[in-house]
């Protein structure tokens, strides 16, 4: 009999704890969003590399820097947990052939010098198709 009287209280306690546990998690800061997409080098998916999204202060954008690993030509900033500040970006891409990664050459043999693109990131989830031109074409 006694134990029955306490059940609603236990249930409400559980509810309070549940709310405390799960509130405040998930979602990003207001001015950031997550971006994903593909990176190709000379038309082929980039085997391994890294992409960094830096808000462009020259165009008045401020905020934190986002980054993501590139694996088999795909990237998603959700994997690093650091979102991208919405607005104009300076995007820097580094990458290599992905063969024999060592601690100091995590992407294998680098295929190109750091590549920089400027683009806009909007609030809506967006996917980008980026291509790094082969240095051979650039020299011409």
């Amino acid at each position: 009999m006694r134990s029955r009287c306490c059940r609603p209280r236990a249930a409400s306690l559980g509810l309070v704890f549940g709310v405390l546990l799960f509130s405040g998690c998930g979602g990003t800061l207001d001015n950031t969003t997550h971006v994903s997409g593909t990176v190709t080098f000379d038309g082929k998916p980039l085997p391994a590399g890294m992409i960094v999204f830096e808000p462009d202060p020259a165009k008045g954008n401020r905020g934190q820097q986002g980054h993501a690993d590139i694996k088999d030509g795909r990237f998603d900033t959700r994997s690093s947990g650091k979102g991208v500040a919405i607005g104009p970006q300076v995007v820097r891409i580094t990458g290599g052939d992905g063969a024999n990664p060592e601690p100091f050459t995590p992407f294998g043999k680098l295929l190109f010098e750091e590549h920089t693109v400027r683009l806009d990131v909007s609030k809506e989830p967006s996917a980008f198709q980026l291509d790094v031109p082969s240095p051979k074409h650039k020299k011409k």
Binding site: M50, V52, Q65, H67, G96, T105, E114
Partner: peptide, 12 residues
């Protein structure tokens, strides 16, 4: 060049 605690980008 990069934010604090950014993984290695391949540029020493």
């Amino acid at each position: 060049q990069n934010a604090i605690n950014t993984p290695y980008t391949g540029v020493y």
